[in-house]
Simulated scan of single mutants.
Amino acid sequence: MIFDPAEQARVPFLRGILTRSLQDCGLSFEESYRVASEIRDELQGVGELSNSELRQLVLKHLDSFGAEVIERYRQPSGQTPTILVRDAKGRGVPYSRGRSRMTLEPCGFEAEDSIDIANRLHDDLTRQGITEIEVPELRRRTHAQIVERLGEKAGKSYLIWQEFGKSEQRLLLLMGGTAGVGKSTFATQVAGILDIIRIQSTDMLREVMRKMLPERLAPVLHASSFLAWDRMPRVEGQSADESTLLKEGYLQQVELLTVACEAVMQRAHKERVSLIIEGVHLHPRVLDFVPEDKGLIAVPMMLAVLKRGELKARICGRGEKEPDRRAKRYLKHLDDLWRLQSFLLSEADHYGVPIVANDNKRRTRRGILRTVEAALAKRFSGDPERVFS
């Protein structure tokens, strides 16, 4: 718990709040999330900490990011802003290089490019003595800086994301893939970048359904996706190879989970919020159950680790960090996992679902964002007049 002596109040430590605060200081989402996670881990077992002690702990972790980041974190939040950014309703918020950089994250630019663009933009505004600026003008200047540094293609990417941001349309990201390919990791990262607050795992949906449907009624539901075939009713005289049985068992489990996935999608549709669903059960057929809504943009993708040795190494690494996720069982059935991934990639290719290879964190995150951008580009032209109006 964090104690505020001035307010005489105790509140829990919230990693998400600290992550946002660090982004405002100029750190990327990945950097902010890592630092906030490290601090959360350090606070495990600590009964209570004052807010001043927490700030000192944060500053200690910011040492490696340089004096400028530290100074931004130290600045009092009530300080009068040098530059006000006003929206269409005339409301003003302080210009922040951190927030400016955050608006570039969906474009998938390199961190150093985003930092440079945000710094150049701030320096130009300061040099020209600008104390107030309208949002459309800020967008226009940002676009000009992007084109100057990174070219027209990067500028177009920025325009598409900004046009989408001005719309009232929502995203539905469907991240499929077997265990160990990074679905939950990248779902969390991309949610932070795109400001999506709803993430749903199909594994969690399966756990709920297991409570509702006992094993005697739905035996395939009570096994891992790659072992569901072993719970299928036996038919006398039936013979099939292991790959065929694995596919049939998996698809039977998918059929059951599709009901829950459809319910989650309908709920998000009703509440008009964006949503990320991640899990092995996101077979391309799930797209048939996406709500029909012109304001909803569904983006399916299949994550994969294309080298067997790399998949094994990732599962081993995950076992060290999260032993409760049963890495030993996954390693024991690595052949089944590999066969299931081969089947999923074949199905993704058949249904035209983009495949994103996870061979490098930065490239994979960029690949996911580019996949989303490609879907946006089918609806948004990136017209400067719309973005800057």
Score class of each variant (00 low, 15 high):
149 R>T: 05
167 S>E: 07
65 F>E: 07
350 H>T: 09
103 T>H: 11
275 L>V: 01
237 G>E: 09
174 L>I: 03
48 E>T: 09
114 S>L: 06
249 G>F: 06
40 R>C: 05
47 G>P: 01
8 Q>D: 15
283 H>L: 04
166 K>N: 12
242 E>R: 15
95 Y>W: 15
255 E>Y: 09
43 L>S: 06
296 L>C: 06
205 L>A: 08
46 V>G: 00
45 G>I: 01
357 A>P: 08
243 S>M: 05
39 I>D: 07
122 H>P: 00
267 R>D: 15
174 L>N: 02
79 Q>L: 13
132 E>N: 12
178 T>G: 09
264 V>L: 12
238 Q>C: 05
220 V>Q: 10
346 S>Q: 13
326 R>N: 14
206 R>W: 04
359 D>M: 02
195 D>R: 11
121 L>W: 07
46 V>A: 03
133 I>H: 10
157 S>N: 09
178 T>Y: 04
108 G>R: 02
164 F>I: 00
285 R>G: 04
129 G>V: 03
232 M>C: 09
388 F>K: 08
71 E>L: 07
235 V>G: 04
1 M>Q: 11
8 Q>E: 15
76 P>Q: 08
28 S>N: 00
378 K>Y: 05
32 S>C: 05
30 E>G: 01
147 V>D: 07
386 R>I: 11
328 K>E: 15
96 S>T: 08
109 F>M: 10
241 D>I: 01
190 V>W: 02
144 A>L: 08
264 V>S: 13
331 L>R: 03
83 I>A: 03
68 E>M: 01
236 E>D: 11
224 S>T: 05
294 K>V: 02
233 P>V: 03
287 L>Y: 05
159 L>D: 01
306 L>G: 06
223 A>E: 15
266 Q>A: 12
281 H>K: 08
229 W>I: 00
344 L>S: 02
205 L>M: 14
202 T>P: 09
145 Q>R: 12
382 G>N: 04
51 N>S: 15
73 Y>N: 08
314 R>Y: 09
204 M>R: 14
93 V>H: 11
249 G>E: 06
56 Q>M: 10
306 L>E: 15
164 F>H: 06
346 S>T: 11
37 S>N: 11
138 L>Y: 09
220 V>N: 01
63 D>Q: 15
145 Q>E: 15
62 L>C: 07
344 L>V: 00
338 W>H: 13
253 Q>C: 04
249 G>T: 02
349 D>R: 14
37 S>R: 14
364 T>V: 04
365 R>K: 12
60 K>Q: 13
245 L>R: 14
91 R>A: 07
281 H>M: 07
304 A>Q: 09
161 W>T: 02
217 L>V: 11
88 A>S: 14
133 I>R: 10
213 L>F: 15
180 G>D: 03
211 K>N: 14
275 L>H: 14
277 I>G: 08
251 L>W: 05
167 S>K: 06
54 L>M: 12
24 D>M: 08
